[in-house]
Amino acid sequence: SEEEIREAFRVFDKDGNGYISAADLRHVMTNLGEKLTDEEVDEMIREADIDGDGQVNYEDFVQMMTA
């Protein structure tokens, strides 16, 4: 549901600035027990970053979650 997606976005957007940065993503993945290299984190950001601004905004996140 849209509310679940919004809630998930809030979990990833640690600093609440409306964007998921590589640092935000790394933090959440580490908490989930996933040890990722910087390259892996950057690749995840690139794949999710639809508009190419280097971070994942809510619209990018929705597209990723509903793809």
Rank of each mutant, 00 (worst) to 15 (best):
Y19M: 11
E40K: 11
V11P: 04
G33T: 10
V41K: 04
A67C: 11
E43S: 14
I45D: 00
K14C: 06
G33Q: 09
E3L: 09
G33Y: 14
N31I: 15
E7V: 05
G16D: 05
R26E: 02
N31Y: 15
D60N: 14
G54A: 05
D15T: 10
F61W: 06
E47K: 15
Q63K: 14
G16E: 04
H27I: 12
A22H: 07
V56A: 03
K35I: 11
K14L: 13
M65F: 08
R46Q: 07
I5F: 08
Y58R: 01
H27W: 14
V41N: 02
N31L: 15
I5L: 12
M65S: 01
R46V: 04
G52R: 11
E43H: 14
S21Q: 06
T30W: 11
E40T: 07
N17T: 13
E34G: 14
E39F: 12
I50G: 07
F9M: 04
L25V: 10
F9E: 00
N57M: 11
N57V: 06
V62E: 02
G33N: 14
V28G: 03
M65I: 08
M64V: 07
V62M: 10
G18M: 02
Q55D: 06
E2I: 14
D60G: 12
D38R: 11
A8G: 03
E2D: 07
E4H: 09
F61P: 00
V11K: 13
E47N: 15
D13I: 02
Q55A: 06
H27M: 12
N17Y: 06
A23Q: 14
L25N: 00
D38M: 12
L25Q: 00
E39N: 07
V62P: 01
M29I: 12
D53P: 03
V62T: 03
E7T: 08
I50W: 09
H27S: 09
G54I: 04
G54Q: 05
G16M: 06
E47G: 15
I5Y: 09
R26Q: 06
N17E: 04
E43P: 02
D15G: 07
I45Y: 05
S21W: 06
N31D: 05
F61V: 14
A48C: 14
E47F: 15
E4M: 13
E43N: 14
E2P: 13
E40V: 09
A48L: 14
K35Y: 11
D13C: 02
F61M: 07
G52E: 12
A67T: 14
K14Y: 13
D49H: 14
N17Q: 06
V11F: 10
D13H: 01
V11I: 10
R46P: 02
G52H: 10
N57S: 13
D42K: 06
I50K: 14
G16Y: 04
R10G: 03
I50T: 12
K14F: 13
V11L: 12
